[in-house]
Simulated assay, not measured.
Amino acid sequence: MTRAPTAAQRRVIDAADPDTGRLRGTEAQLAALVKRGLAFRHPRPPHAHFLTPAGHRIRESEPAVPEEAEATEARGVFAARIGGAEGAPASGPARLREVRGAWQGLLELRRMTNPDGAVDRPCGWERTHLVQAAALALEAAGHPPAGPDSEEGYRVRATPQPEAVAVHEVDGARLRACATTLEEAGWQVGEHTESRTGVRYLLASPRRM
């Protein structure tokens, strides 16, 4: 799991442009943030550095006090709830703030890395982190993830198909609502039925155009 940023790195993150997430710092500082997944280097000149969704989450969070440093390090950076596999789903204002910051960071990442600057279509990072990206879209829209011992709530899982995830939800109405959310977030979604169990589920892929 990614370690929490150092105090110097946190200052660089906190000083990022509030609108674009552009960073300013030494080459060593910026390289370290890239290595930790908190920043990315834009492929086009002047090759500026910008916050990733995880970096935005750090900026939106409250600074960790010294007594909390060990817990913060263990907690690491933001991870969307994929449903079922984690512990009890986090809730409350702190989690809402984290999710909101991560989603805004992802939209900015789309704007900066999609060739046409589109924010209504998934970017390259999402295509290499399909489960996390789909789960973030669902959680940011207010859908509850399933707990480890609960049948209710969404579950996002990888599939053998390239660029496709499966989304399960026991409630049919909620399943359709999940489909609407993903479509609005730029995903192509189809509803399918498992031949053996008859269970309905979604198959979702990032839209390219």
Rank of each mutant, 00 (worst) to 15 (best):
E68G: 09
R176P: 04
A133G: 10
R155D: 04
D17K: 07
L107G: 02
E191L: 15
R200W: 02
L51N: 09
R207T: 05
E108H: 01
A94N: 07
R97A: 15
P206H: 06
A164G: 00
H49G: 03
A177K: 10
A39Q: 06
V189A: 11
R208P: 02
T6C: 07
V119C: 10
T113R: 11
W103A: 14
P63W: 10
M209D: 14
E163I: 00
R208M: 13
P63S: 09
G92K: 08
P144C: 00
H129Q: 12
D19Q: 13
A64M: 13
P122W: 04
P89N: 03
A85E: 10
A39L: 12
G21S: 06
A7H: 13
E151M: 12
G186L: 12
R207K: 14
M1L: 12
R97Q: 15
A164P: 00
D149L: 13
M1C: 03
G190N: 01
V189E: 10
E27V: 10
G101N: 06
K35W: 08
P122I: 02
L51R: 08
R10M: 13
H168D: 13
E126Q: 15
P206A: 10
L106R: 12
E70T: 11
R155T: 09
L138S: 03
P45F: 05
G147E: 02
A4Q: 13
E60C: 04
A173R: 12
G101Q: 06
A54F: 01
H56V: 00
T197C: 05
R36W: 00
G198E: 06
P122E: 11
H56G: 08
L96K: 09
A166D: 02
D14T: 03
G117I: 04
Y201R: 07
C178T: 01
T72S: 07
G101V: 03
G25Y: 05
T197K: 06
V99K: 06
I13L: 14
N114F: 11
A137R: 05
R24M: 10
L51F: 07
A185Q: 12
P18V: 02
D17L: 08
I82F: 00
T180N: 08
L130D: 06
A85F: 01
P46N: 02
R59I: 03
P46F: 02
A173M: 11
L96A: 15
V65Q: 12
H56L: 05
L182A: 14
G153D: 06
R3F: 04
V119F: 01
P144E: 11
V165D: 09
E60T: 08
P5A: 03
R200G: 01
G76D: 09
Y201A: 02
I82D: 01
A80E: 08
A79E: 15
